[in-house]
């Protein structure tokens, strides 16, 4: 996992609370291989009609081309556990999502992949989206070291991210390789548990 420190670049606003992972990547793409064009599945049915023609969704507007930050609303990524959702977001080039809340499973999935889910107050997310809509193509900065976001109007706000997750993102450390060092503790737990659950 690449360490995450600061990200600066074009930000794109995606309106609407409760954007579920079925919107982020429809189920029919879940078996697809993660080829270089995987980003095409991101918000696929919002972006393309049944004839694969563009619908002019915000992500595809020329002003927002090359966006690296996505600014959403409340409960972003609710619904299914599919990790393909953060995969598609990253494949599109997005490295951080700013929203007033995330679905719990989606949130964890982002972190495992080094994609930063930054939680801000609802009015901050709304202001950022309004600024981005009024000034398409403007940039934002997400600074994980300082836990701040610089909005398009150059005002700086802080965001919430769990400290354990912040450290792991900064270090770019992979959770699984760390847990393997706990093998002895897991062995000990299993031995104790076998006795406890004598009915199993």
């Amino acid at each position: 996992m690449t360490p995450f420190r600061t990200l600066r670049g074009i930000a794109v606003p995606v309106d609407g609370a409760n954007i579920d992972t079925d919107q982020i990547i429809p189920a029919r793409f879940l078996l697809r291989r993660r080829t270089p064009d995987y980003g095409r599945y991101l918000f696929h049915d919002l972006r393309f009609d049944t004839a694969e023609q563009g619908r002019g969704f915000v992500l595809d507007r020329p002003d927002y081309r090359g966006a690296v930050i996505l600014v959403a609303d409340a409960n972003f990524g609710c619904g299914s556990a599919r990790e393909q959702a953060p995969w598609a977001i990253q494949a599109f080039g997005i490295g951080a999502i700013v929203a007033s809340g995330f679905g719990d499973i989606f949130y964890a999935n982002c972190l495992k992949n080094g994609l930063l889910p930054a939680v801000v107050e609802p009015d901050v997310a709304a202001r950022a989206r309004a600024l981005l809509a009024d000034h398409p193509g403007s940039a934002m900065t997400v600074d994980l070291d300082r836990r701040t976001i610089v909005l398009p109007d150059e005002t700086s706000v802080s965001f919430a991210v769990d400290e354990a997750h912040r450290r792991r993102l900064l270090d770019g450390k992979d959770e699984l390789s760390l847990t393997l060092a706990d093998a002895a503790a897991i062995d000990a737990y299993e031995a104790k548990r076998r006795v406890e659950l004598d009915w199993t």
Binding site: A81, N109, K112, T179
Partner: peptide, 13 residues
């Protein structure tokens, strides 16, 4: 409910 990375983590540990 978990993601694939967490499933991999459980498979291994």
């Amino acid at each position: 409910g978990i993601g694939m990375s967490e499933s991999t983590h459980i498979l291994a540990t």
